[in-house]
Design a protein around this nucleic acid. Structure first.
Lengths: 117, 117
DNA sequence: GTATTGTTCTAGCTCTAATAGAACAACTTG
DNA sequence: CAAGTTGTTCTATTAGAGCTAGAACAATAC
């Protein structure tokens, strides 16, 4: 799993890291039961602090995508892997266009809610 | 145009303000050539600092949605209004397709949230 | 000419992100 | 059981963004 981070981005590093893992799960590059590198390992290889990596892992845990256990590390959950893989591509074009126009995720979802009602 | 801001949100106030205006344009509540309230006026009525409002306006200008001129204020550009209107139509197509496939609004917005992260 | 409005500048305050180091608790492995 | 691995928790510091504040300035409208 290749992870590239941009320190100059307004997006926090821990969030970029979480996003990278999330994307890998959605694309099927990481499957249920697979284990992520240990925080200390990944921090070393990415040139980050251990706490920053753990912060990202904890966000993924909050989203239900991975399980964290001491001594074992971070493991992809079945529910997380299943839920992500679906209609993601169908939305890619629209979200890219929306982002180009400066819309936030909140604004886009707001438009959708109105569209559905 | 009603603007509601949440100071407790992680989203910066200037960004929330820009988002509100953007949404109003996308929904057609603000049309090309229309003038926004002056920064000093809006700051007063929203309980914000003038600079915060101007920060939001400047973001909208960077996105090409409004023009800023001293003495005149912020005016919605034709190109900005058009672009957002187009997106709105594209979005209508996607939501129609999603509905045809049996997705709920919640599922769709959840996918978008992940797409943006 | 006068009022309005955005632009620019300095300044201070607060909060988040990121880093750093240390000790600790739970789990895995031999 | 013993040792190593890994996440958890704690305190602390640094850097930057966001927001507020006040002032002076420049372009436009009337």
């Amino acid at each position: 799993m290749l992870i590239r981070l941009d320190p100059a981005s307004p997006e926090p590093l821990f969030a970029q890291l979480a996003a990278a893992v999330r994307g890998a799960i959605a694309r099927g590059e990481l499957t249920a039961g697979e284990r992520l590198p240990s925080a200390r390992e990944l921090a070393e290889s990415l040139g980050l602090n251990v706490h920053t990596v753990l912060h990202g892992y904890q966000r993924l845990r909050d989203e239900g995508l991975v399980e964290l256990r001491r001594g074992r590390g971070a493991v992809v959950t079945p529910s997380g892997a299943d839920g992500l893989a679906r209609l993601r591509h169908a939305l890619a074009d629209v979200t890219a266009e929306a982002r180009r126009l400066g819309l936030s995720a909140g604004e886009l979802t707001e438009l959708i809610r109105k569209e559905y009602s």
